[in-house]
Simulated assay, not measured.
Amino acid sequence: MTGVPEPAVPDGDGRRPPSVRPRTVPGRRRAEIAEAAARFFAEHGYHTVGMREIAEAVGMRGASLYNHFSSKEEILYAIALAMTEVPVEQHIPLLDAEGSPADRLAALLRAHIRHLADHRVEHLVGLRELAALTPEHRAVITDHRRYYQRRVRDVVAAGVRAGQFAVDSPGRAAVAVLDMVNGISWWLRPDTDVDELVETYLGLALDGVLQHAREDRA
């Protein structure tokens, strides 16, 4: 490592796959309903509740709920979409910023973990109930996840070429890192020190999985 930032050139082609559709930003009330429904799904299970129960959980009449969402599946899709498209839109640009591959990946992981900590319930529901989505909706979510994983793989590969990471398969390493940080949602508690969590998992990812070669090592 020279300490001189690399040019801000994307490690991949920087484009989303054609199958990923642009996100339609929901109204604030839709977002509030989706957030409350996620808590209800997490507590009672997606398949055990209907639209009437969801409406009661969010404090509105059943008929009013249909003004915002046409079905329970559409609510689930909105939850899963927010947990996949928002990271693509907000975190992936960090991989195209200035700095070494290790610096850029660290910035993405910090943002990723903080977003997950802020939306743990929604993230967990999106993971657990993916099979309940329609094939079309499930394909959109899967495309977002694959694109995100591919961009992480590309920056890991750049780090290998730069001598910063020591892994044989950047693709498998990317999967390992993302699986590790996404697993936080299964056990995270409200009283968890998120700052400490971020730095702990950053070390596990960079120094552990990726065998990051730091300047201060012999």
Results as ranks from 00 to 15, higher is better:
Gly50Thr: 10
Thr192Cys: 10
Ile79Arg: 01
Arg138Cys: 00
Arg110Ile: 14
Arg15His: 13
Asp179Phe: 03
Leu95Pro: 10
Gly126Leu: 07
Leu95Asp: 01
Ala132Gln: 11
Asp193Trp: 09
Leu178Pro: 10
Ala107Ser: 09
His144Met: 02
Thr142Ile: 05
Arg28Gln: 06
Asp168Tyr: 02
Ala63Leu: 09
Arg153Met: 11
Trp187Arg: 14
Tyr46Gly: 06
Leu124Met: 10
Arg23Ala: 13
Tyr66Val: 06
Ile79Trp: 00
Pro10Ser: 11
Met51Ile: 13
Asp191Leu: 07
Arg145His: 00
Leu204Arg: 06
His137Cys: 00
Ser64Asn: 14
Tyr77Phe: 11
Arg104His: 13
Val58Thr: 15
Leu109Tyr: 05
Ser185Leu: 08
Asp118His: 01
His112Ile: 02
Val175His: 08
Gly62Tyr: 12
Glu196Cys: 12
Ala36Met: 10
Arg110Asn: 09
Val167Ser: 04
Ala111Glu: 02
Thr24Lys: 06
Ala82Gly: 10
Leu76Glu: 04
Leu105Cys: 09
Leu178Asp: 03
Leu95Glu: 03
Arg217His: 14
Ala166Gln: 15
His91Gly: 15
Ala57Met: 13
Tyr66Asn: 05
Met60Phe: 04
His137Val: 01
Pro22Arg: 13
Asn67Trp: 12
Asp195Trp: 05
Ala139Cys: 07
Arg153Cys: 03
Thr192Asn: 08
Arg153Glu: 14
Phe69His: 03
Gly59Arg: 08
Val140His: 00
Ala132Leu: 02
Gly12Pro: 14
Asp191Lys: 09
Ser185Gly: 12
Arg161Ile: 01
Met60Lys: 01
Ala205Arg: 05
Phe40Arg: 15
Ala173Pro: 10
Ala36Glu: 08
Leu202Met: 10
Leu108Ala: 11
Pro170Arg: 11
His144Lys: 01
Ala42Gln: 14
Asp143Asn: 05
Ala82Phe: 02
Val4His: 06
Ile92Ala: 01
Ala63Cys: 05
Tyr147Cys: 00
Pro7Met: 15
Glu74Lys: 04
Arg217Phe: 06
Arg114Asn: 01
His115Cys: 07
Arg189Val: 10
Met51Thr: 15
Phe40Thr: 13
Ile54Pro: 04
Ile184Val: 12
Gln211Phe: 07
Ala111Leu: 06
Glu6Phe: 14
Val20Ala: 07
Arg114Ile: 08
Ala174Ile: 07
Ala158Trp: 11
Arg23Trp: 13
Leu108Met: 02
Arg39Phe: 12
Met180Phe: 04
Glu43Cys: 08
Arg189Pro: 07
Asp96Lys: 15
Ala205Met: 06
Glu74Asn: 10
Glu196Thr: 15
Arg150Phe: 01
Val58Ile: 09
Glu89Met: 07
Lys72Pro: 02
Gly12His: 09
Arg145Leu: 00
Ala36Lys: 05
Ala55Phe: 13
Arg21Asp: 03
Gly203Asp: 15
Glu53Ser: 11
